[in-house]
C-alpha cells in the first residue's frame, strides 16, 4: 500500500513544475520580451536563433545581433545597459537557459526544423511571453509522445515559425501530417530507438 501510494505520489511529483520548470519565468540579466520582439515587431525566430535550421543547437544571438537595432533604438534605456556594456567591453551576456535538456540527451535542432516541426510545438506561444518561460515539460515522455506519433507535429517547413495555428483547419493539418510522415518514411520504430537521443 505504502509502495503503491508512494509511486503514485512520486509520479505526480516528477511532473510537477518544481522539477520540470514548466511555466516558471527564468531570471535574466536583461528582461527580454519575446512578446514585444515577435508579436509587436514581427521579428522572425531565425533572425536571432540562427542555428535553428542549420545546426544542432539553435543558439542565442550574439550581442552584435541585439545591437543591430539597439544601436539606433532605445539607446539610453537602462534595461539595455548590460547589452551596451557587453558590446563595448567584449564580455558576453550571461543568459540563464530556459529550453535546457539534460547532458545525456543529444538533441539536434536543425533536423527537427528541416522536417517541419513548428517552433510552437516545443517552445509554446513565445509571442505571448513578456518574459521567457519553458512552455512544455521537457520530460522524456514529451519527446517520445511525438516520436511515436510524428504526424501530429509536422507542418510545412516554410511555415515552421508560425505561432498561431488556430485559424487553420485541424483536419487539413492532420492530413498534411500523415502524408508528409509517410512521404518522408518517418518510422516510429526508428525514432523511438535509444540511439536517436542517447549515445
Amino acid at each position: 500500500m505504502l509502495l503503491v501510494g508512494a509511486s503514485a505520489a512520486g509520479a505526480g511529483l516528477v511532473r510537477n513544475p518544481f522539477f520540470t520548470a514548466q511555466g516558471w519565468v527564468v531570471d535574466q540579466p536583461v528582461p527580454f520580451s519575446h512578446k514585444h520582439h515577435v508579436q509587436d515587431d514581427g521579428i522572425d525566430c531565425r533572425y536571432c536563433h540562427t542555428g535553428a535550421e542549420t545546426r544542432a543547437d539553435a543558439g542565442l544571438p550574439p550581442t552584435h545581433t541585439c545591437m543591430t537595432c539597439h544601436s539606433q533604438l532605445w539607446t539610453d534605456a537602462a534595461v539595455l545597459a548590460p547589452v551596451r556594456q557587453s558590446y563595448a567591453t567584449g564580455k558576453p551576456l550571461v543568459w540563464h537557459r530556459v529550453a535546457q535538456l539534460p547532458d545525456y540527451v543529444y538533441f539536434d535542432h536543425h533536423v527537427h526544423v528541416k522536417n517541419g516541426v513548428a517552433c510552437v510545438e516545443c517552445h509554446g506561444r513565445v509571442d505571448k511571453m513578456p518574459l521567457t518561460w519553458r512552455a512544455k515539460a521537457f520530460t522524456m515522455d514529451f519527446c517520445v509522445d511525438c516520436h511515436r506519433n510524428p504526424q501530429k507535429a509536422l507542418r510545412p517547413p516554410q511555415m515552421v515559425t508560425r505561432m498561431d495555428w488556430s485559424g487553420v483547419n485541424p483536419d487539413l493539418l492532420k492530413e498534411y501530417g500523415i502524408r508528409i510522415a509517410g512521404h518522408k518514411g518517418l518510422d516510429p520504430n526508428r525514432l523511438t530507438n535509444c540511439e536517436t537521443c542517447h549515445r
Binding site: 505504502l2 509502495l3 501510494g5 508512494a6 509511486s7 505520489a9 512520486g10 509520479a11 511529483l13 516528477v14 518544481f18 522539477f19 520548470a21 527564468v26 540562427t50 543558439g59 542565442l60 544571438p61 550574439p62 550581442t63 552584435h64 557587453s86 558590446y87 567584449g90 564580455k91 558576453p92 551576456l93 550571461v94 543568459w95 540563464h96 537557459r97 535546457q100 539534460p102
Partner: peptide, 23 residues
C-alpha cells in the same frame, strides 16, 4: 523506498549560456 522513486528525477542544475559578442 518511496523517496527512491523521486531520487532519480532531481532537478537539473540551471545552466548559463554565454553567446559570443560577435559570432
Amino acid at each position: 523506498l518511496a523517496l527512491a522513486g523521486l531520487d532519480g528525477c532531481a532537478r537539473e542544475a540551471d545552466e548559463t549560456a554565454m553567446p559570443f559578442v560577435n559570432d
